[in-house]
Amino acid sequence: MTTNTTNIHIRTKINGQSYEFLAPSYMSLLDALREIVGLTGTKEGCLDGNCGACTVNMDGRIVDSCLVLAAEMNGSEIETIEGMATSDGLHPLQKTFLEEAALQCGICTPGFLVAAKGLLDNEPKPTERRIRHWLAGNLCRCTGYDKIVKAVQKAASDN
């Protein structure tokens, strides 16, 4: 309805599945996922790239989806929290987050899981310092990070 909006034609893969849709030119990747595709596991926390609640994996890279335009999805492969568990069950990080009580309210959890997976995919045995550094772009206000770091360490040691 907004005046002078141009819609962009997008072909993309999300969690291995092909999608094709139109998105307004101003729309973020976050809003395209939540409002067009209907995947609400990716959360809005700040809309300025400082909280990490909207973290998704884009072509192997961790991005804040609130800072990426939907138009940039075209031709790319996106992985969200909804793609982490497979028909074989939960991802090891999802298991260790549950076992280690690494979530309280849970709003930051999808972002932390996607970010932590991005780390372990490339560095299976990170140090505590490395984990803390990697996750510094994701804010959690409930846990004090202790149990999150321990859950990532546990998933790494089970690798």
Binding site: R34, T40, G41, T42, E82, L98, G106
Partner: peptide, 16 residues
């Protein structure tokens, strides 16, 4: 827990 590690849990902004 399961709903909150899989992105399935519905928070206020997720309501459709």
């Amino acid at each position: 827990g399961i709903d909150k590690v899989t992105g399935r849990a519905i928070y206020g902004a997720d309501v459709k």
